[in-house]
Simulated scan of single mutants.
Amino acid sequence: MSTVLIIGAGGVGNVVARKCVMNPQVFTRVVLASRTLSKCEEIQRAVGTEKLEVAQVDADNVPELVALIRKVQPDLVLNVALPYQDLTIMDACLETGVDYLDTANYEPKDNPVFEYKYQWAYRERYEKRGIMALLGSGFDPGVTNVFCAYAQQYLFDEIHYVDILDCNGGDHGLPFATNFNPEINIREITANGRYWEDGEWKITPPLSESFEYDFEEVGPKRMYLLYHEELESLCRNIKGLKRIRFYMSFGEQYLTHLRVLQNVGMTSIEPIEFQGQQIVPLQFLKAVLPDPGDLGPLTKGKTNIGCNIEGIKDGKVKRVRIYNVCDHQDAYREVGSQAISYTTGVPAVIGAMLMVQKIWHRAGVFNMEEFDAKPFMELLNQQGLPWHIKEY
């Protein structure tokens, strides 16, 4: 018997709520909360009022969160709200003594740093409270961390090189739209690239390094080097690592639009005055762009996300590729969301399943690769994200 409280009712929240309801053997009670109650009620109507409870909460307000947690009395709070709200939700879990899980690391609104230090700082307090926080249980971060952990634990004696490749081969037919929160997405892409090599971080200008890669079931796509948060924990936890990088695919049309928006100042996070009010250009842009949650029925094609890993096994060089392919239309038919939301939401549910069943459970704050990868890998196959291994 376990109760899960989900906070956030966007595209990922929709997937998480539906998949939790699909696993009543683990989650006997599912509660979905958001600042916008109508979003929760829309998901509730889709899955059935008897299967999903809803509530309203401001995730920026710790006392409100504490009151809701005490009312619901969940075994786990599953955070799929905005990354800006990670710390307030962690504070509320600390105060109420409830386990915590999220899919993306905390990010200050005024400084897009993408660092785990803010959440790692909670380790000692969570340990003393006897509760657990699992960070980044999405796909990347999340599944990619588990792929690396699986390789370290079961396939290699030593891992030297990792390239994480995130390819979205989907097409929604719109001139310009982001597949997840536009504000977070654009901040991520317009930041400097960064990768870890020989014990230090190397910096590259935004989108300055790229190459073409031929993806299984998708075909050739141009990949661009970005900084992504899982690099920060993996470079600490994968022993013997010499280099780790992250690449994401972008079409030329998308990048052309992005360059124009940057050139005219629409991607800035610095407030400007407009008609007597302070507005943030990027937040205004988010308001006029299509909602990623509405892209499900439009998007066709597949994603292919995985890790290319090189290291040593039994004294010989070994190279493997571990990856997943997800079809946008298959995801939409199952849960009413496109594959980007699906590939983030399903791993969040798997992480929650392992935590409430005490398969993954220790007091403190942890990243995905710090646990036995095998139970998570088995559930990926069962919950709709089957993986494949190629050895070169």
Rank of each mutant, 00 (worst) to 15 (best):
V77F: 03
T103N: 12
L32R: 03
G8S: 13
P108G: 07
T103R: 08
K39F: 10
I89C: 09
L76C: 00
G11C: 15
V66Y: 14
V98A: 03
Q44H: 03
T28K: 04
S38N: 03
Q73R: 01
L37M: 12
E95T: 13
I43Q: 05
F27M: 08
F114S: 07
Y118M: 13
D102K: 04
C20N: 08
L65T: 09
A55Y: 11
S2F: 11
W120N: 02
A81E: 13
I89F: 07
E42H: 01
A67C: 10
D91P: 15
P83F: 12
N79D: 12
E64L: 15
Q119M: 13
D86W: 00
Q56K: 05
K109V: 09
L78W: 07
Q85V: 09
G11D: 15
I6K: 05
V15S: 13
L101E: 05
R45F: 01
N111Y: 12
Q56C: 07
E64C: 14
A33K: 01
L5T: 01
V113P: 15
P112V: 06
L78Y: 06
I6M: 04
Y106R: 01
Y118Q: 11
R70Y: 13
N105P: 14
V12L: 14
K71G: 09
D102V: 01
E95P: 15
T103K: 09
V15C: 12
D91K: 12
F114I: 13
K39R: 12
V113S: 15
R70A: 11
T103Y: 12
G97F: 04
L37K: 08
T49M: 04
A121F: 06
V30T: 02
A121I: 02
L52C: 02
M22W: 05
V113E: 15
S2H: 11
Q44A: 00
E42N: 01
V80K: 10
A46M: 04
F27W: 04
Q73G: 01
I6E: 12
R45I: 03
I89D: 11
M90K: 08
Q56G: 07
V47N: 02
Q85K: 10
